[in-house]
Amino acid sequence: MDSSDTFTLLPLHLDPATKAISYQGTPTTALTTELTALNDLHRSLLTLDTPNGIPPPPVPVNPKRTAQINKLRESGNDALRKGKPADALGLYTLALKMAAQRPPWEPAGLVREELAQLYGNRAQAYMAGQGWAEGAVDAKCSVELKKVGNAKAWWRRGRCLVEMGRLEEAREWVGEGLEFEAGEQDLVGLLKEVEVLIEKRKTWSG
């Protein structure tokens, strides 16, 4: 870090039409990523309608986007209940996209919560259509975002792994899940199932 009264002057250039900032000369990778991030942020700041164009404090959140995401999720759930996993998949994906496009200064905790739920639901939609590989990744995403109070996602990845025949991995995963969700019936049941299958496999190969 430079001392407080000096700085390194960078040869930056402002595009008069697009207002995009670029670097004159050969920039480093860090500089390129930083300038891209800056220009993106500038664009998203422009969409604001606050006075002075500064981002509002994180709370309260603009309820419009939340409502839209919830609506998409509900219709996704409905589609899944009616046995149309492909439709549900599309709706969840759309909702995910929307949640991920939340302006960056809105509460990260909220984004986490929404993404965790949506990834969990999408994992289920994948599972309904036998997409075990995608389901496994989505469930993992969900768990990664929300470890506690997310037993469904733990269970879903476990199930997907079992379906793909990755029993050892499934056992490890479900065991880890039980550390967070002690005594969760579904997980206990799945763990038992996995152990039975592993035992069976041993007797077959042995």
Partner: peptide
């Protein structure tokens, strides 16, 4: 000045969330 670091904090956390996913 009162809210810039709140916003920045959320931005930093959001960046982590997005990168991980």
């Amino acid at each position: 000045g009162q809210s810039i670091f709140q916003s920045a904090n959320e931005m930093a956390n959001n960046a982590i969330v997005r990168k991980r996913t």
